[in-house]
């Protein structure tokens, strides 16, 4: 009795050997397009962004953000190049195109393509995670240019009084006087609140920074 299915499977095996490079190339093209789409998705998500600058962040966090984005860019670039390489490849480079060597070259190329695809997937995923981490840091790290003293968004003012001038963020202004929070620096280890009595205030001028 003939087991025809066995022959069909043997034929399928031969067919797969012939077609596997084309199949893998098609897969690579799909992955290349998919990974490019995923990378583009980040820009869509960033439409909902908060801060778009790191200038107000503390210096350490600014460097962390810059490093994250630089590494992410490198990973995405490398991943994109690997996915393009997987989709195109260079079969037969540096080998004689006779039957035996070409048979091995096809197997090599399939392996190379699979390896390039795996690298592209890992790099793209890691790059996207780093970008999201960088953006997330931008959202959650407080802005020291405005929020270093805990009165986020309060305007800076220059108060001129009989005793001199005081510059800082405006905390309170009422019938008793003007309370200003002077930032750290100039001999002050931390931000301090200074109260200028109402009677001695001559002028209160808003300033961009102290």
């Amino acid at each position: 009795m003939s087991d025809l299915q066995k022959k069909r499977l043997a034929q399928l095996g031969q067919q797969l050997q012939q077609d596997q490079l084309a199949v893998v190339r098609r897969q690579a093209e799909g992955w290349r397009n998919g990974l490019a789409g995923l990378t583009g998705l980040v820009s869509v998500v960033l439409v909902l962004k908060g801060k778009d600058s790191v200038t107000g962040m503390p210096e350490a966090w600014r460097w962390v953000c810059a490093a994250l984005l630089a590494i992410a860019f490198g990973l995405l670039l490398f991943g994109a190049l690997r996915s393009v390489q997987a989709a195109n490849g260079e079969i037969g480079a540096g080998t004689w195109l006779n039957a035996e060597q070409l048979f091995g070259a096809v197997l090599d190329e399939v392996e190379r393509t699979q390896r390039a695809l795996a690298t592209a997937r890992r790099c793209t995923a890691a790059g996207l995670c780093l970008i999201v981490a960088g953006v997330f840091l931008g959202w959650v790290v407080p802005d020291t240019s405005a929020a270093g003293t805990g009165t986020a968004g309060a305007p800076s003012v220059l108060v001129t009084s009989a005793g001199g001038t005081v510059c800082g963020q405006l905390v309170l202004a009422d019938a008793h006087g003007v309370v200003v929070r002077e930032p750290a620096g100039k001999g002050r280890p931390a931000a301090t609140e200074v109260t200028v009595p109402a009677g001695s205030v001559r002028e209160v001028v808003p300033v961009a920074s102290c």
Binding site: Q14, Q17, E111, A118
Partner: peptide, 18 residues
């Protein structure tokens, strides 16, 4: 007739070695 080992997958060794 030639029968190849399937290579539909990357290498699992160090640096994807075969």
């Amino acid at each position: 007739s030639r029968v190849a080992h399937g290579v539909l997958g990357p290498g699992k060794g160090l640096w994807g070695a075969r």
